[in-house]
């Protein structure tokens, strides 16, 4: 059984839930795996630390909750502070490097930053930050296939914005692949 717990954290409005939705949809509809998306859902989530939890499983995902993430994706400092201590030993931590300063990383964690805000601004829309992070995760974590993730991006974003969002996805994905190749060659 292979079960992967993913937590995505950020500020309400950054598209945290949509990022979780894309990952879950990629796994559940296009990679033939089981996926469960749950979300912190409450008035306190608006503008504050907010999160989406995705459990991806090669078998039926019976227990739906994320307890100790294998992968943490963070797009805000409060989300980092709040969630980083929850991760499993050896977890993968992915962060937006102009918004998050990492410290006190649990032992054995692999942490990688990406200038996703700058990339998003270069693409002309700051709001595609979350899609860049999804691409980054797709490259660095063997959770969902890149084909599945691309299809899920197209399914999940507003009509007419597919090209912009796929561009954002590729930007994050390529940046992640570069890191992955560097890591494997050293």
């Amino acid at each position: 059984m292979s079960r992967t717990e993913i937590k995505i954290g950020g500020l309400g409005g950054q598209g945290v839930i949509l990022a979780g939705m894309i990952l879950g949809r990629a796994a559940a509809l296009y990679d033939d795996m089981d996926a469960t998306l749950t979300q912190s859902f409450g008035p306190e989530a608006r503008g504050g630390a907010c999160s989406a939890q995705v459990v991806v499983n090669t078998e039926r995902n019976l227990y739906p909750c994320v307890t100790r993430p294998d992968i943490l994706v963070v797009m805000s400092q409060p989300a980092y502070e709040r969630f980083v201590m929850e991760v499993k030993p050896g977890a993968l931590v992915l962060y937006e490097e102009s918004l998050v300063e990492t410290h006190h990383l649990p032992e054995g964690c692999r942490a990688f930053g990406i200038p996703a805000t700058r990339f998003a601004e270069e693409l002309g829309r700051r709001m595609v930050l979350n899609i860049i992070m999804v691409g980054f995760l797709t490259a660095l974590a063997d959770v969902v296939s890149v084909e599945a993730a691309r299809k899920a991006v197209v399914d999940s974003v507003p009509k007419g914005t597919e090209k912009l969002n796929l561009g954002a996805f590729e930007k994050g994905y390529e940046f992640g692949l570069d890191i992955k190749n560097r890591e494997s060659s050293c």
Partner: peptide, 10 residues
């Protein structure tokens, strides 16, 4: 219940 209602799956 709330958790089933707001849980997303295939």
């Amino acid at each position: 219940d709330e958790s089933v209602g707001h849980m997303t799956e295939r």
